[in-house]
Design a protein around this nucleic acid. Structure first.
Lengths: 397, 397
DNA sequence: TGACTTTTTTCAAGATATATACTATGTATT
DNA sequence: AATACATAGTATATATCTTGAAAAAAGTCA
C-alpha cells in the first residue's frame, strides 16, 4: 500500500534537484557526465539542474579531470560553505553544541557541564541558546547562513511543532522543547532522540555507510537501537520505535531500572553489568570499571555476551538487516575485545538464514557522535527540500 | 536518507494515475469532485486522468448522486471485472487456489489436500498449476484478464525472479518456486511468505485498515509477524523480516522445534501450548484441544498469556505501532476469551508511552485469508503500475 | 421559462525532460 | 603548426504534463 504522491510538473524539478544534490553530497566530487549515469537523468537535465545549483551557489566546481583525448570533465561538489548546520547533544552530564559546514567539518564547539540531577528544562534551554550564540560568534558564521539546528535528547520525542519530550532520566514529562527553543531563536529546529541521531551519524559517516536495512545498537548506561529501514531512520507512530533496551529477554528475570523485569538493559546495560559484578556505581569511573571487568575475563562478562548475542539475534530475526552496528561506549568496550564471542552467541540464538546475511560490526564514530548526528537532521532536510534556500528565507523574517 | 526518484514528465501522469486509482480502490465510489480534495490534484487533471482510466475501462461510472440544486455528481469506481487476481495458499495440509475480481469477490476456488510430509515441490507446483486451470475454467475468465498470481508459502522467500524459498517444515532449501511455476504459466507471479500475505489481507480489508504503522501477529502452530511500516509490508534485506516466533523471550528456557532455547514460539505456539499442558499432539484435534484448555482455565494458558503479552510488548517497544492485530487460529482462540488479560500482560511488560498509543485488536479475517492476501500482492502491483494493462500485454505474448 | 447552482470539461499558458544537433576543449597525428 | 579525433557540456525543438480560468453541462427552484 505504498502511496505514490507527486503532483505538479514543478515537483519534478524539485525532485531531480534533490536527486542530484544527494548524489553529489554522498558520492563527492563528480562530473556532470558521471551524474547522468548515477542518477539516470539525461545529460541535458543534469546540465540544466546543475546550472541552477551552481547559480544558487549550492554547488561549486572542483577542478578538472584529465581525459585521454577529449574535453576534460569539470568536477562538481557541494559548496561546503553554502550553509552550516548546528548539532546539539543534550546528555546526562553536558550540553554540547557544535557547528559544522556542509562537509561536516566542525567549525566551532561549545560545551556546558550539567550537575547530576541538574536537568531543569530552563537550564538546558539556556545552555542550548547560549551555545548557539557561542558557536556562531566563534566561527563568524552569520545566522542567515545556518540551515538549521538539530538537537539530540534522551527519551522519547514526539515529532510535531512542539517536539514534546518524555525523558524519565531527566524528569521530563511532555516538555515542549521545540516550542521553548523557538522563543529564543528563529533558526529551523529538528529535535530527535539522541540514540537515533547517533545512529544516523553511523549510517551516514560511520560503520553503517551504504546499508539500506540496518540496526545501530547503542549500549551505554542505557540500551537503545536506531532502526534503519530502506535507508531511513524508522520512527514508528510516535517516534519511539527502537526501544530495544526494555524488550524482555528473560521474562521474570532481573529487575530493570524501568521497573520491569527481565529487560535486556538489566543485563547488558553498563550499570547493570557493574551491579551484577558487585561493583559500586560511580559514573566517574564506570568506564574504567567495565574495561577492567572485560580484561579480567569476569564470568559476568561471559553472561553479558550471551545476553547481548541473544538481543542482537532478536533484532536480526525481526528486522532482517544487512548490517548490525554495535555502538555506545559500553558496546564498544565489549565489542573491541569480544566481538567474535558476541557473534557466536548471536548465531546460536538466531535463525540461520537471516543471520547469514547480517554482518555485525563495531561503530566507528565513538560515543560523541550525537551532535554530529543531530546535525545530519538538518542536512537531511537540506538535501530533500532546497528549492532556493529555505533557511535563509526563514532567517530573513 | 530517503532517496527521491522520479524522472521524466511522463512519470507524473503515471504517478497521478496511480494516486487516483488507489483512492478509488480504497475509498470506493467517489465523484471527480471529491477526488480533487482527496488527492490534491486539480479538477482538470482529475478529469483528464479519469478520462484515460475510463477509456481504458479500468474504472466505470457508478450512478449519480443528487445534488441540492446543481449538476449531480457522477460516481466513479474501479471496474471490478477489468481484471482478476489469483491467490494461492500453500499450507501444511493443502494447496488452495482462489480467483478474485478486483472487488475481491471470490469467483472460483480449487483446493488440493496435502498428506502430512507430502510436500514435494513438484507436487505443489502441479497442484498450483492445476488450480489455476481449474479456477479459470470454473469462472470462465480468460487468462488474458488475469493480472497475476500471488502465492503465499511458508518459510523465507527471497525476492527475485526465481523466488527462492527456504521452508524448513517443507524440507525446502532454496527451492526456486517462481522459476518452476513460470515453466507452466505465463501469468505474472508474486511469491511471498504466507504470514506476510495474510498480514496484508488484515491490513487492507481486516482489523488493520487505515493504519500506517502496525504489526500483525500470527499465532498458529508456528508464530510469526507481519510488520507494516508506513503502510507497506516491511521485508528487510532478504525478505525474512518478522520472524517473531524465534526471538528469545526466556534465554535458556524451553527448547523450541527450531532447535534453539527460549524462543517465543516454544511458549505461545499452539503445539508448544498443548505440549506444555501434557496433551498428545494431533493436528486433527489440536484446535479443539486448545479451545478446551482456554475454556477450562488451565494454568498453562495463564502462563501463555503472560508470554504472549510480553512478546507483544516487545513488538510495541521496538516498532511503536499504532495498532497490533492478533491473528492466526491459536491467536484468535486465545484472544476471543482473554484479550483483556493479554492487554494487561502487555502493559506490564511495555514502556508506558508507546503502549498508550498502540491498540491491540483481534484479526477479523480468520485463518483462511492467506490466499486473499496473496491476491493483494497482485492488486498492489496493479494499483502502482498500470500504464495500460501490463498483464494483458504479458499474456498476449 | 429563466435564474441559479454545482459539476465537469475545454483551452491556453507555463514548465519540464529528452533527443538531437551543436559547441567547447582537450589530445593525437601528420 | 595544422588538422583530425574524442569527449564533455549546452542549446534548441518537441512532446508531455499540470493548472487556472473560462466555458459547458446538467440539474434545481421559483
Amino acid at each position: 500500500m505504498a502511496r505514490p504522491e507527486r503532483r505538479t510538473v514543478r515537483d519534478l524539478r524539485k525532485g531531480n534537484r534533490a536527486v542530484l544534490l544527494r548524489a553529489l553530497y554522498f558520492v563527492g566530487p563528480t562530473s556532470r557526465h558521471e551524474l547522468t549515469a548515477l542518477t539516470g537523468l539525461s545529460a541535458a537535465t543534469v546540465s540544466n539542474v546543475t546550472g541552477d545549483l551552481l547559480s544558487d551557489n549550492v554547488i561549486v566546481e572542483a577542478g578538472l579531470v584529465d581525459s585521454d583525448g577529449g574535453r576534460p570533465r569539470v568536477l562538481l561538489r557541494v559548496n561546503p560553505v553554502h550553509g552550516y548546520a548546528i548539532g546539539v547533544d543534550v546528555g546526562e552530564t553536558h550540553v554540547r553544541v557544535e557547528l559544522f559546514d556542509l562537509d561536516m567539518n566542525e567549525k566551532a564547539k561549545a560545551e556546558f557541564a550539567l550537575r547530576p540531577g541538574g536537568h531543569e528544562v530552563e537550564l538546558v534551554v539556556r545552555h542550548i541558546l547560549a551555545g548557539i550564540e557561542a558557536v556562531l560568534a566563534d566561527s563568524g558564521v552569520a545566522p542567515g547562513q545556518v540551515l538549521g539546528v538539530g538537537v539530540g535528547v534522551p527519551g522519547i520525542v514526539e515529532s510535531g511543532p512542539d517536539a514534546l519530550i518524555h525523558a524519565q532520566t531527566f524528569g521530563w514529562d511532555a516538555v515542549p522543547l521545540g516550542a521553548l527553543l523557538r522563543e529564543g531563536t528563529s533558526l529551523p529546529l529538528y529535535v530527535d532522540n539522541g540514540a537515533k541521531t547517533m545512529g544516523q551519524a553511523e549510517l551516514w559517516f560511520g560503520a553503517g555507510r551504504g546499508s539500506r536495512n540496518a540496526v545501530i545498537a547503542l549500549i551505554g548506561s542505557g540500551v537503545g537501537a536506531s532502526i534503519i529501514t530502506d535507508g531511513v531512520t524508522y520512527r514508528g507512530a510516535n517516534s519511539s520505535a527502537g526501544e530495544w533496551g526494555h524488550t524482555k529477554i528473560a521474562l521474570g528475570g532481573r529487575t530493570c531500572r524501568c521497573g520491569g523485569r527481565g529487560c535486556l538493559e538489566a543485563y547488558i546495560g553498563a550499570e547493570a553489568i557493574l551491579e551484577r559484578a558487585g561493583l559500586p556505581l560511580d559514573t566517574a569511573t564506570e568506564q574504567a570499571q567495565l574495561a577492567e571487568l572485560v580484561r579480567s575475563g569476569s564470568p559476568v562478562i561471559d553472561e553479558t555476551v550471551e545476553y547481548l548475542g541473544a538481543g542482537l539475534a532478536n533484532l536480526i530475526n525481526l528486522f532482517n538487516p544487512e548490517r548490525i552496528v554495535v555502538g555506545g561506549w559500553a558496546g564498544l568496550t565489549l565489542g573491541h575485545h569480544l566481538l567474535t564471542k558476541i557473534k557466536k552467541a548471536a548465531a546460536e540464538n538466531c535463525l540461520t538464514q537471516p543471520f547469514s546475511t547480517a554482518s555485525i560490526v563495531l561503530g566507528r564514530l565513538g560515543p560523541d557522535a550525537v551532535a554530529l548526528g543531530a546535525a545530519t537532521l538538518v542536512i537531511e532536510e537540506f538535501l530533500l527540500n532546497n528549492t532556493t534556500s529555505p533557511a535563509r528565507e526563514a532567517a530573513a523574517l
